[in-house]
Design a binder for these strands. Structure first.
Lengths: 206, 206
DNA sequence: TTAGTAACTCACCAGTTAGTTACATTTTAA
DNA sequence: TTAAAATGTAACTAACTGGTGAGTTACTAA
């Protein structure tokens, strides 16, 4: 094996990146530490030196993955957008983020299959979800302007929005087979985005 | 080990049931053949006698699981139900089925994480989904009656409906943590059912 | 009885797995 | 300069894993 340059920071990042790919495709159980080491081009010992254990490594991956979502949400520039447009912007954000980050989708799915056991163990401040606030604000603004139905509950809306977006990505393989049609391709995702936006707005508006 | 009664049919069923539980909670990679044997109260050797391999056993489980969904869908008595009511009935069916069969949800998720590799290998006639036909009929009927928007595409509606229902179950653990609220309990599921019905109908109706 | 067979048990293997250790090399700081 | 800390390698281990060879038991039919 060729010698690695000594660079602790880079090595840490390489391990994290390789681990994320391995955990995303095989889950915590299925992932192999030796495979992660090989993928990162690093010796296995360093994984234990930097992260301590397979589980601890998984937790670091989980945190990094949710951090990406948080950053994407934080970039949502809400200035000047009213109720309708803001909801549309949030839907676009989710679709674009999920389409561009399949490893996020996979790891969230693994985490759910594991009853969120590791997510629960993560410090809550690492899981801020700015978009929740955007959705709350958007619904409140829309109601105040008289464009949204006044009886809407902000959390219900947020849940409807998130679930309606997510399942298009999490279930695209089985649905593609059942519908005998490739639902994972960019054009289909774009179509689903349009439909989802229409559905959500029909539900929100008077 | 205590002796088992000789009953090939029962043994097969015990193995299938144990395997489904094990595969649902740990996936194909994480599931242990020894664990399945212990759970079924049967000697591991018999799993290989009856099913040949871990993969073949998984395929049998997959087929049995989708069969349950098919049977539930087939029970949907559509007689006398018009566009609106039929759509409502399909949503109720999905919510009730998914709520009562968490192993179905888990195995579909695992299958998606595995890019539907094993589902694809299953004979298509074992995957009839009668509800697709119901949804098509309901949308067509609603359009003919002038209650649904005429530009609706039947497949888009089916996808919106299925994804909107499924994600409430597949993602309830991570969402419960992020919303700091138990979304997996019966009351919350009922609330989500009501919201989802309202959302879908708002999207379908003129 | 006897023989055939399906259902079953037991003990084992070859390969894999997470995690460890002995030791070499490089960096850092006094 | 040099000692210690950090970073690296490769070989190792104890436990586990899917799968199997060989033999046993219960039942049936001749």
């Amino acid at each position: 094996m060729s010698k690695r340059e000594r660079n602790a920071e880079q090595s840490r990042l390489d391990i994290l990146q390789a681990a994320e790919a391995e955990f995303a495709s095989k889950g915590l159980y299925g992932a192999r530490v030796d495979e992660i080491a090989a993928l990162a081009g690093i010796n296995k010992r360093m994984i234990y030196a930097y992260f301590g254990s397979k589980e601890a490594l998984y937790m670091s991956v989980l945190q990094a993955v949710y951090k990406r979502m948080e950053r994407a949400e934080a970039q949502l520039v809400a200035d000047g957008l009213g109720g309708r447009d803001l909801i549309g912007a949030v839907i676009d954000l989710y679709f674009d983020f999920l389409a561009g980050d399949p490893q996020f989708v996979s790891i969230v799915m693994w985490e759910n299959l594991n009853k969120a056991a590791y997510l629960k163990a993560l410090p809550v401040q690492d899981l801020e979800r700015p978009a929740f606030a955007y959705i709350r604000d958007a619904v409140a603004a829309g109601k105040a302007l008289g464009v949204f139905r006044p009886e809407l509950d902000e959390q219900d809306v947020a849940l409807s929005l998130i679930t309606a977006c997510f399942a298009n990505f999490s279930n695209c393989y089985t649905l593609s087979h059942l519908f005998e049609r490739d639902l994972c391709c960019a054009e289909q995702i774009e179509q689903r985005k349009i439909e989802t936006r229409a559905m959500l707005l029909a539900y929100l508006c008077l």
